[in-house]
Amino acid sequence: MMSDRSLPAPDRPWLVLFGLMLGVTVTNSFARFAYGLILPAMKTDMGWTYAQAGWLNTANALGYLAGAVVTMVLIGRMPVTRLFNFGLLTTALSLLATGWGTGMEWQSFWRIAAGFFGAMSFSTAGVLTARLFADDVRRSALAIALLFGTGGGMGILLAGAAVPLFLGRYGAEAWPTAWYVIGGLGAACVPWALWSAGKLHHPGTASVASGRLPLRRFLPLTFGYAGFGLGYIVYLTFLSAWMTEQATGPVGIALVWVVLGLAISASPFLWRGVFARFDSGVPLGLVLIGIALGSALPVILPAGPAILISAVIFGLCVFMSPGAVTHFVRRNLPPEQWGAAVSLLTVVFALSQTVGPLGAGLLADRTGNLGDSLIAASLLLLAGAGCAFAQRPINTTT
Rank of each mutant, 00 (worst) to 15 (best):
W100I: 12
A303R: 09
G261V: 05
A247E: 15
T90Q: 13
F148A: 03
L374Q: 03
P203C: 14
R111H: 03
D136E: 15
L93V: 12
T25N: 08
D45G: 14
G227E: 02
V258S: 15
A292G: 05
V329M: 05
G47Q: 10
A292Y: 03
V312R: 01
P79E: 03
A324E: 00
A97K: 03
R77C: 00
V355Q: 12
W14K: 15
L142E: 05
G290K: 02
A97D: 01
S378E: 12
C387P: 06
G160C: 04
G371M: 00
Y225F: 12
T49W: 07
G168M: 07
T58V: 15
A226F: 08
L293V: 12
A385N: 06
N60H: 14
S352F: 12
Y235K: 10
S121D: 13
S378G: 15
G359F: 06
I313Y: 02
I375A: 08
P250Q: 09
E173S: 10
F109Y: 11
Q391I: 08
T81L: 06
T222M: 05
A68V: 05
I112K: 04
D11C: 10
P203R: 13
W257H: 04
M120D: 00
D365P: 02
A41Y: 02
Y235V: 15
W271F: 15
W271Y: 14
W14A: 15
L83R: 01
S210W: 08
E245I: 05
L213A: 04
G273H: 12
F319Q: 00
A266W: 07
G155T: 09
F117T: 09
L158D: 01
L358Q: 09
L194M: 14
L128R: 09
A143H: 06
S3A: 13
G160H: 00
M120I: 13
G285P: 04
A197C: 02
L157T: 04
I394L: 14
S207G: 12
I253Q: 11
G281Y: 03
A68H: 02
P220R: 06
V312Y: 03
